[in-house]
Amino acid sequence: MRDFDRDRERDHDDDFDRKRRGGIQKRRVCRFCVDKLPDVDYKDTSMLRNFISERGKILPRRLSGNCATHQRKVAVAVRRARQIAFLPYVVSAG
């Protein structure tokens, strides 16, 4: 699908608009605090993949919902994982 097609479709997507305007209040909780998960492990790539975007960037707190402490730990863990080639530094398009 071309980009502008997708944009047009998104603009006509009522559900999307409602979400964007804040009609739906999403729960934004730190999953590490709530589920009392063990500390962030830089080797656990399947878990860390939840906190990076499709481009390989670290998701901001705004999106990940982490508390400050755990966001910091996740960010460090992602950087460690990148060093040992467990996670990408960047995912190129195409």
Binding site: R6, K19, R27, R28, D35, S53, E54, K57, L63, S64
Partner: peptide
């Protein structure tokens, strides 16, 4: 727990990053 927020956020975020 409900992961819809992260999923939708990822979709939105991914679009912005295309």
């Amino acid at each position: 727990y409900d992961d819809d927020f992260v999923a939708s956020a990822l979709a939105e975020h991914g679009d912005n990053e295309s």
